[in-house]
Design a protein around this nucleic acid. Structure first.
Lengths: 119, 119
DNA sequence: TTCATATTTCGATAATTATAAAACTTTTGT
DNA sequence: ACAAAAGTTTTATAATTATCGAAATATGAA
């Protein structure tokens, strides 16, 4: 994965509204949801929504298709996987154990606790 | 992990120079490196470097300690792990397999709690 | 104390990003 | 053809972010 793509992906998700949009799309699954429905659920004016959707699409994190009058957006799970993969491999010092998601056995264990118990 | 912390972390890494800095620190390991050495290796003017380091620290992705005249920065691997964990669980639709890094067996699905179903 | 080194803070400027009203495009129903 | 519905584009504005020279701060050495 190219570094510029990583940065585009991170930047796309590093924003309140867009993270909400993306999580909604993730929850919606591969089917996706219409732009209007997203706007309705998150209470966004259409130009604002459109702006954020185009940012997410530019980053390659979502795809869209027209269906009648609506435009259906869906999360690009593969792209998201690549992003997580990049972070895991490039930002965790090869210490897979430290950054591996729970439920994933990277030989050496990292007992997942709710972090920051320390005062 | 709080959503605001996630956004801060993503935003911190979503920038060329900062991603370079962070990767350098990851490579350097828990020992860390002095600010000056980072600037030297990446060819950055000190105020620019200082600005980015403070962004990374604000996001909780790096920590620093003074050692004589130098200030040593190190990556916060635990914070990075939390970030990756959040992305894996909240942005991959629970499809651990889809986002799990290669070489990592998704076999045992972790009992996901705190999934925040709504919104 | 004075000097040199390592870094941060201040300040000014340029660049980018987020927001949303108004206008436009596409599609469908009548 | 006309109107309504669903989205996008245009445009303007406000807010945030990135960059660095100059000045300030802390530490160790002479």
């Amino acid at each position: 994965m190219k570094k510029s793509a990583v940065i585009a992906g991170l930047a796309a998700l590093a924003q309140d509204t867009r993270l909400d949009i993306f999580r909604l799309l993730v929850e919606a699954g591969p089917e996706g949801i219409a732009a209007g429905e997203i706007g309705r659920r998150l209470g966004l004016p259409s130009p604002t929504l459109s702006f954020h959707l185009s940012q997410l699409r530019f980053a390659g994190l979502v795809a869209s298709r027209r269906q009648s009058r609506s435009i259906i957006y869906r999360a690009n799970f593969a792209a998201m996987a690549e992003l997580v993969d990049y972070l895991t491999h490039n930002c965790c010092g090869g210490r897979a154990g430290l950054c591996a998601p729970a439920g994933c056995a990277p030989a050496a264990e990292a007992p997942r606790r709710r972090a920051t118990k320390s005062r």
